[in-house]
Structures are given as structure tokens and as C-alpha cells.
């Protein structure tokens, strides 16, 4: 990716890969060849792919560990629910797109609020503060009550009675979450969102801004000394990432009939982080593949019932041990070189 043409080709292959998978899945869906469990996974896969890409922007490209990414997802999710459920007179697709857009914007605002203090810190301290913000967002949403009636939206941080609704509906009911959501999300919109997230991220990475961000990651002091405004670029990456997470959150929420704030806890943040690390830090294509495989894997292991999460844990540990084993990785590189040497001109992006 040192020269622009190679970068462009890499991008094109990534887009083509995603589109091809989408077309195949869409074809299989139309032919009715997809099992129910997999069909139900399609939108969550899109959501987690977007989440993984957006988190990779912070963890891989900016180089700051964030443990509260689910917080931004939940801001987008609940904003999306409020937007879509208070505009019921609009056609479903418009409601969905508006929900995603406003959800992303709100998460972006949350990103600014969180980012300004967080990005002053470094290393593990930064990580723990993102964790703290994630927990704070969850805790606040757990106490948020939103209702809608003819007069418009009502908000409260106390309880549902304090909304004083006149024959309206409660949209968000504190710890009970959002009870009655219209399931508006579709696989096509999910795919389009993946493309949008991908385009934003890849273009950002391969732009002047992206290079500045990566320079900060590689050596903050050196970057600062050549005149890069560290705070500005860090905040830019962080807020973009938050907004993208918010968009995927809105898509996620509108895929279910009800949703709880508890869903977006520390474990969800970690889940997405696992996608990013296993896919490779800063490797966008890796994030897509890891998110897809690891979302399907627990479902595919469903037959093993109680053992599936145990197996997931063991697989996770073993993969981390294997990929960080210098001897094993050296041999793998040698093997790759050998294979490449034999099949000259063949498929070389394996």
C-alpha cells in the first residue's frame, strides 16, 4: 500500500469482495436456499462488519485502544428507534434511512463529548476511560424515558409517569429498553451501510488526513514536530468512528422488535474488539472477514449447546497464542513464499 495504485487496487478488491458476497447471498435468499438461522444473521453480520471497521479506525489506524465502542452503538440505536417510531407517517425505507442518519449524527456528537477529554490521555489510561464512558452511556440510557404523543416528544430521566403522555406511546422505557420497534431493517440497506462505512473509512485512510492519523499512531512526538495537529486528527478519527458505530447501531436496533440498553455493555465492546484484533490491526479487509466468521461461528456451533461459548473461548485463546508464536508465524511466511514461488502469476492475494 505504499503507492496509490496499489492502495486503489486493494480498495477495489475489498469492494468487489463485499459486493460478490452480497450478490450471492441475495441470490440464495431469492431462491429460498438460505436456512432460517443464517437469514436471521445477515443483518447482524452487516452491523458487526460496520462496527469492526469503525473500531479498527480507532484501534488500528489511530492506535488508541477503545473499550467503549458499544456505547456509541447504543446512542445510535436508541436515537434510531426514537426517530423511526416518531415519524410513523413516512414510508418505511425513509424512516430507516433517517434513523440511520440521525443515529449516526447523535453518536458523532457523543463522540465529540467523549473524545475531547479521552484523547488527552494515553495508553491504558485512555482505554479505561473509554470503558468508563461506555458504562456511563449504558447507565444513562438505562434511566432514559422517551415517549411521543400529539404534542411531540417527551423526555425524562425519572420514570415513565414523569413523561405525562396524553394517549401517546412510550418509545424508550428505562431499563426495559425500547419495547415496540417496527422491524424496518433490510439486508439490502445493511449491505449499503457496509459499503458506505467502507468507502468513508478507506477514503479517510488513503487521504492526507489518514496519513496524518497514521503518523500520529507511529510516533506522536515526531508527527507533532512536523506540524500535525495531533488533537484535531485524533478527534477526527474518533468522531468518524463513533458516527459510523451509531449508524450501525440504528440498523441493529431496527432489526428487532424490542431492545435493551443492557445489550450494549462492555461485552459487546469487547466482542467488536476481538473482531478487530483477530482480523488484524489496521487491516480493514481482515475486520470484515473476522466479523463475518465470528458472528456466524457461535450460531454454527449451536448444535453443541452449552459448550459453544466454551469452544469459542478456547478457539480465541488458541488463535491468539498461534498468531503470536514467532516460530509458527515464521514457518507460515516461508510456506507462503514457497507456494507463491511455485504458482507464479496465479492467485497471489491469498
Amino acid at each position: 500500500m505504499k503507492n496509490a495504485t496499489k492502495g486503489t487496487r486493494y480498495n477495489m478488491v475489498t469492494y468487489a469482495m463485499v459486493t460478490a458476497v452480497f450478490l450471492v447471498m441475495q441470490g440464495l435468499l431469492l431462491a429460498g436456499k438460505v436456512s432460517n438461522s443464517l437469514a436471521g444473521q445477515l443483518i447482524p453480520i452487516c452491523v458487526y462488519v460496520c462496527m469492526a471497521i469503525s473500531l479498527n479506525l480507532v484501534v488500528g489506524i489511530l492506535g488508541d485502544l477503545s473499550l467503549g465502542h458499544a456505547g456509541f452503538m447504543s446512542v445510535g440505536a436508541f436515537t434510531g428507534v426514537v426517530v423511526s417510531m416518531s415519524l410513523t407517517f413516512l414510508p418505511p425505507l425513509v424512516r430507516l434511512l433517517l434513523a440511520i442518519a440521525v443515529g449516526g449524527a447523535m453518536a458523532g456528537v457523543a463522540g465529540v463529548i467523549v473524545g475531547v477529554p479521552v484523547l488527552r490521555l494515553q495508553g491504558d489510561y485512555l482505554a479505561i476511560v473509554t470503558l468508563a464512558f461506555g458504562e456511563i452511556i449504558k447507565n444513562l440510557l438505562n434511566n432514559l424515558y422517551v415517549g411521543v404523543d400529539k404534542k411531540g416528544l417527551h423526555f425524562s430521566m425519572k420514570d415513565a409517569q414523569a413523561l405525562r403522555l396524553k394517549d401517546g406511546t412510550i418509545l424508550i422505557n428505562g431499563p426495559m429498553g425500547a419495547p415496540g420497534i417496527d422491524k424496518l431493517s433490510t439486508f439490502v440497506v445493511g449491505f449499503l451501510l457496509v459499503l458506505v462505512v467502507l468507502t468513508v473509512t478507506l477514503n479517510l485512510i488513503h487521504s492526507r488526513t489518514g496519513r496524518a492519523i497514521m503518523a500520529i499512531r507511529d510516533n506522536r512526538i515526531a508527527a507533532e514536530s512536523v506540524g500535525i495537529n495531533v488533537t484535531k486528527y485524533k478527534l477526527m478519527a474518533f468522531v468518524t468512528s463513533a458516527a459510523l458505530a451509531g449508524m450501525s447501531g440504528a440498523l441493529y436496533a431496527l432489526n428487532y422488535s424490542s431492545i435493551l440498553p443492557k445489550k450494549f455493555d462492555f461485552n459487546t465492546s469487547i466482542l467488536v474488539l476481538v473482531f478487530v484484533v483477530l482480523g488484524g490491526m489496521g487491516n480493514i479487509r481482515g475486520s470484515i472477514i473476522a466479523a463475518t466468521v465470528l458472528t456466524i461461528l457461535p450460531e454454527a456451533l449451536r448444535g453443541l449447546n452449552d459448550y459453544r461459548m466454551l469452544i469459542y473461548a478456547v478457539v480465541l485463546i488458541l488463535v491468539m497464542l498461534a498468531t503470536n508464536n514467532p516460530i509458527l508465524m515464521n514457518n507460515l511466511t516461508l510456506l507462503k513464499k514457497k507456494l507463491r514461488g511455485k504458482g507464479k502469476g496465479g492467485a497471489s492475494h491469498g
Binding site: 483477530l278 459448550y307 466454551l310 473461548a313
Partner: peptide
């Protein structure tokens, strides 16, 4: 121990894997 010289994030993810492992073993 095998990750002594690995990047800190790899160790973090492994720790999370261990955490999942302990929780799910306890569940079983």
C-alpha cells in the same frame, strides 16, 4: 507466558478469552 513478548493488545484479547472460558466453565 507464551505471549511475554507479544503486543499488549494480543495479551488483552487472550485475557478476555480466559475470562470467557472461566465464565462458561462455571456455567457448565
Amino acid at each position: 507466558k507464551p505471549l511475554r513478548s507479544a503486543p499488549s493488545l494480543a495479551v488483552l484479547i487472550t485475557a478476555i478469552g480466559v475470562s470467557y472460558f472461566l465464565q462458561n466453565s462455571a456455567l457448565l
